[in-house]
């Protein structure tokens, strides 16, 4: 029964992936591919954030601290050192992982909103640093990169889809393994987890590293997709807000939930674009309705009602 179920699940996920991957063959709309590309990167941010928030129980207001570090490290590497894209992306990711490591210390010591404040401060300090070193970073105007991933819309679509699929698979494996259970346990009651003989530090470090790895990859790839790195795309609090909303309305502690939430947020925003300046408001109202009437997100609508 269990095994059959697991096969089912894997099969279905694979099917969804294949169906999505065939999209460029059936549509001539590069615009749709462009929209989904952004949505997929947002999905990676959301999944990485949910690993810390949903599973490890950390109130993290600073996903854009990790994303921004990676984006700017990769951007500066390309602009000033002139190194190729595929060298700069790992460098950016490494910067994000260092940033993630820096957050572990406070995370072990501080709880709930107090840790949330530290992450918020980290984002604000990063923003100030970008302004102060505007000679290098371009400040509020942003940094123009020499290179981009690819000119082709289809190519960009596959890069984003590929990253999203890899992230989903790796995170799925991690959270379903004993490791994920310990992580979740330490998020809910770290003292009891320690008492059971598990090293909370080790697991927290692991969670932060994984989250930083994927947000870093996505951050670096996002700037090479856009061709510019600017505070408005990878640092400001508004980006964090998008990530949080995508995760929550999709469904916490659910990989596919984060993906659904991100795709909904971006696609709904595009559909409602004719509303003009009220389109963001309309999306927020929809999201609030979901939250009030189905607090466990889209994923709960598909069967997991009242669970957990």
């Amino acid at each position: 029964m269990n095994i059959a179920y697991a096969y089912w699940r894997t099969g279905l996920a694979l099917l969804a992936l294949i169906v999505t991957a065939c999209l460029p063959a059936v549509t001539s709309s590069y615009y749709l591919l462009g929209v989904l590309t952004t949505a997929f990167y947002l999905a990676v941010y959301a999944m990485s954030w949910d690993l810390l928030f949903g599973y490890a129980g950390e109130v993290n207001f600073g996903p854009t601290f990790l994303i921004g570090l990676s984006a700017y490290a990769a951007g500066l590497c390309n602009t000033f050192l002139g190194w190729p894209v595929w060298v700069c992306i790992p460098i950016g990711t490494a910067a994000a992982m260092l940033g993630g490591l820096a957050l572990v210390g406070p995370a072990l010591r501080l709880k709930g909103p107090y840790f949330g404040l530290v992450t918020l401060v980290a984002v604000l300090l990063l923003g100030h640093a970008i302004t102060i070193f505007s000679g290098y970073t371009g400040g509020e105007i942003g940094l123009a990169l020499r290179d981009i991933l690819t000119l082709s819309s289809t190519g960009n679509f596959y890069y984003a889809l590929g990253l999203m699929a890899i992230t989903a698979v790796v995170l799925r494996i991690v959270v379903r393994s004993p490791l994920g259970l310990i992580l979740e346990a330490s998020g809910q009651d770290s003292v009891a987890t320690e008492a059971l003989g598990f090293s909370v530090i080790k697991f927290k470090v692991l969670a932060f590293m994984l989250s930083a790895l994927f947000s870093g990859l996505a951050g670096a790839m996002t700037v090479f997709y856009f061709g510019t790195a600017s505070p408005g795309t990878v640092v400001v609090v508004a980006v964090t807000v998008q990530i949080i909303i995508a995760t929550i309305i999709g469904g916490r502690r659910s990989i596919i939930g984060s993906i659904l939430g991100a795709v909904f947020l971006v696609v709904a925003g595009e559909f409602l674009r004719p509303l003009g300046e009220l389109s963001t408001t309309a999306v927020s109202i929809l999201a609030l309705l979901v939250l009030v009437f189905a607090p466990n997100g889209f994923i709960s609508v598909f069967g997991r009602r009242g669970a957990r």
Partner: peptide
């Protein structure tokens, strides 16, 4: 659950 979710995603797209 995953069946519906995947179907919804694909049809949505």
């Amino acid at each position: 659950r995953p069946l519906l979710a995947a179907a919804a995603l694909a049809t949505g797209v």
